[in-house]
């Protein structure tokens, strides 16, 4: 292969600016982390609420939760991004629509975080539901017998156990958020994938660029994995499913 290798490319200046290619990748890395963490907070909050609602005895609440999950799970993430970015603003009143499209601060960042957050919330809701339903029915009745109301039973009896049980699948989900955030490049978020395309085109050192980006994503997901591993260790209940005997 007649490839001209240049591993020093990261420290060279970009074509029409003062910064180096490494600066581009660092900016991109920063936006990747920002979008991912914001989306994760949205996803964890909404996912927990909706997952919990799906296990309650109220039929219409369960139906609403199911609809939410199926809606966000059955549409590809890229399509959802483009829907939020191009289609949703057109449905707003004209003035508001123009504001969202041109003047709203950090519009790409907000759109991408909300979109990724909602997408992930559907998956977390499914895991929370599974976690709660994996508990023996007796726990619900025990809570009731203690004189707890339904919300209190969830708060003090069911959810603390359910969340411990679903830490492993949540770990995967947390890692996925970082990887899925790469789709945000399609709606103009200047994150890592975006910067890698930019650098590839500007420097023509594609292989070096993608190797660096691969390592950065790997590091991100790996740190996420270790953080969740720590949480799993600290919160385990000795003698129960996830704890050691």
């Amino acid at each position: 292969m007649n490839y001209h290798w240049n591993w020093g490319i990261f420290f060279e200046q970009v074509k029409n600016g003062d910064e180096t290619y490494l600066d581009w990748l660092i900016t991109g890395f920063g936006w990747t982390i920002a979008v991912s963490l914001t989306a994760w907070i949205i996803a964890l909050t909404l996912g927990s609420v909706i997952g919990t609602l799906r296990t309650t005895p109220r039929g219409w609440v369960v139906a609403l939760g199911n609809a939410w999950v199926e809606f966000f799970r059955n549409i590809p993430l890229l399509v959802q991004m483009l829907l939020w970015f191009f289609v949703v603003p057109e449905l707003l009143p004209k003035d508001l629509s123009m504001w969202v499209k041109q003047d709203m601060p950090a519009k790409e960042f907000i759109t991408a975080s909300v979109c990724l957050g909602l997408f992930t919330s559907a998956r977390i809701a499914e895991q929370v539901r599974a976690g709660i339903q994996s508990l023996p029915r007796g726990q619900l009745y025990a809570g009731m017998a203690m004189g707890f109301t339904l919300p209190q039973t969830y708060r003090y009896v069911l959810l603390p156990m359910a969340f411990r049980i679903i830490v492993p699948p949540l770990t995967s989900e947390f890692m996925s958020v970082f990887k899925n955030s790469s789709v945000a490049f399609a709606i103009s978020v200047l994150e890592l994938t975006f910067q890698s395309r930019q650098m590839q085109e500007d420097s023509e050192q594609g292989i070096e660029t993608y190797v660096a980006v691969t390592i950065l994503y790997f590091v991100c997901a790996f740190i996420a994995n270790r953080v969740m591993g720590q949480i799993e260790q600290r919160t385990r209940v000795p003698g129960y499913v996830t704890g050691k005997h």
């Binding site: 970009v14 074509k15 029409n16 600016g17 490049f185 103009s188 975006f194 930019q198 590839q200 085109e201």
Partner: peptide, 11 residues
């Protein structure tokens, strides 16, 4: 994406 037009504008 992958073009550098905005930098050209600044330059």
């Amino acid at each position: 994406t992958g073009t550098t037009s905005v930098q050209l504008m600044r330059a």
